[in-house]
Nucleic acid binder design. Structure first.
Lengths: 239, 239
DNA sequence: TGTACATCAGTGAACGCGCGTTCACTGATGTAC
DNA sequence: TGTACATCAGTGAACGCGCGTTCACTGATGTAC
């Protein structure tokens, strides 16, 4: 597995105080390379340095080691992912349509950035190396069903929240809005959001893994996902 | 990432004509090592040879290269996976219960053999390197809705079918049985099976990727999956 | 029954490679006087 | 305005490592006569 990459022309040296410029360029190149190649292990420090037009040791001026660099890239991409979801969601004033557009954006993100998607949602989660702050933010999910829509919006906007949790809270809020509008029955919006996530995620990952399989069109899955949320909200209030 | 493994005691040499014995041992060790470590790339030829108690070149007596070995392991494990599904499914005479048990076995398989699961269902599917025979078997799925339950059973039993396709046909058959028993409405059992697969797969992969997240208990997901299948069968006959 | 020989399951040493990371350094840029 | 100097963004060469794979070989096992 060769890791050669068209080397960028030697870049001009940053001026004093502009050291962060290289940091940004490294992040950009790493992101691009991860996207191009399949595996994150297949992207080497050397390849990243080459792409930026710099020597490998320069990377260590900005990141302690490879893990720190990979983590930084993920954070960045997770933020972009969340923004994409919210942008798609905002394209319709109708909460039902808005939730479906959110699902559509999820599927599209997986299709268009399969490697970043893999890093964000598929890479094995180790119990030992939890993202910082995730434990607190999860315990906070415990009683979202008591919160109003405004509470949820405020919560999702907290800057100290891990971006993954915030992105999930956006979905909870979207479900909650459907309930507010009377489009979905009252119930626990978190349970509904989880159901939505599961089926959309299943569809996205299976399409990536088995591209030859005759999966149904995305519109049908979005409709099914919506009805599944209804099902869960109803079942939840019954039980 | 060290790849050292407790080396097995030097094994006794196979007798003439028993060359396949080593082949089996290699497959067993490879399977075990893939299961232990996360990544399949993290399992080296050397580690496998060590675990078997043999030198690395011996591997090449039985497999052309590493890819061929990995493929053989997957085939083997896919068969075990399918057997596990069918065994679980057979534990109840009730078709509804049987379908749910099948889903439960899927989730359990993912939980208990996360790395094999990853290899079978998560690894990126490249359009160029399709498993042999998959194209024919997929085109064969086109009109399963016309087939009787017996037809489906016979089809799934065809020995020349790729084991993945066969395992999926087992699910189609399970859905079809629910229709036969009147537990589910008439419709396209293939569409129902895909829906079932999507949500169960989504649940399984998300639990693996985000072990800290408060996902609902598996029983609830199995119930939801069943109702989702009903939803799809109904929607399919309407549209 | 004894022996020469072909077969075949493995061995041992080495190959070239790309990797992450370290270390001593260089030379342009800005600052103090 | 001119110069000595500290700062800092990088460089270049090398480290030790594990990898997949190759190649010439060895020595036990079975077979033919």
């Amino acid at each position: 597995m060769p890791t050669k990459v068209a080397a960028a022309p030697r870049r001009t040296r940053a001026r004093r105080g502009e050291g962060d410029r290289l940091r940004e360029e490294i992040l950009g190149a790493a992101e691009r390379l991860i996207l191009e190649r399949g595996n994150i292990d297949a992207v080497s420090i050397r390849a990243i340095a080459d792409a930026v037009g710099v020597t490998p040791p320069s990377i260590y001026l900005h990141f302690a080691d490879k893990d720190e660099l990979v983590f930084a890239v993920c954070e960045l991409r997770f933020r972009e992912f969340r923004d994409a979801m919210n942008a798609a969601s905002g394209e319709s004033p109708d909460p039902t349509e808005s939730l479906k557009l959110r699902g559509l954006a999820y599927v599209r993100f997986g299709q268009e950035h399969p490697e970043h998607f893999r890093v964000l949602f598929v890479a094995r989660g180790e119990a030992e190396d939890l993202p910082p702050g995730i434990v607190e933010s999860v315990s906070l999910l415990a009683d979202t069903s008591q919160l109003t829509t405004d509470d949820l919006v405020r919560l999702a906007a907290s800057p100290e929240l891990p971006v993954g949790t915030a992105a999930f809270l956006d979905v909870v809020t979207a479900v909650r809005r459907c309930m507010d509008a009377g489009a979905l029955p009252d119930g626990d919006p978190l349970a509904g959001a989880v159901s939505h996530w599961m089926i959309i995620h299943g569809y996205t990952t299976l399409r990536l893994a088995k591209p030859w399989f005759p999966f149904p069109p995305v519109e049908q899955v979005l409709d099914d996902a919506y009805e599944l949320v209804r099902l869960r909200l109803t079942a939840g209030t019954e039980g």
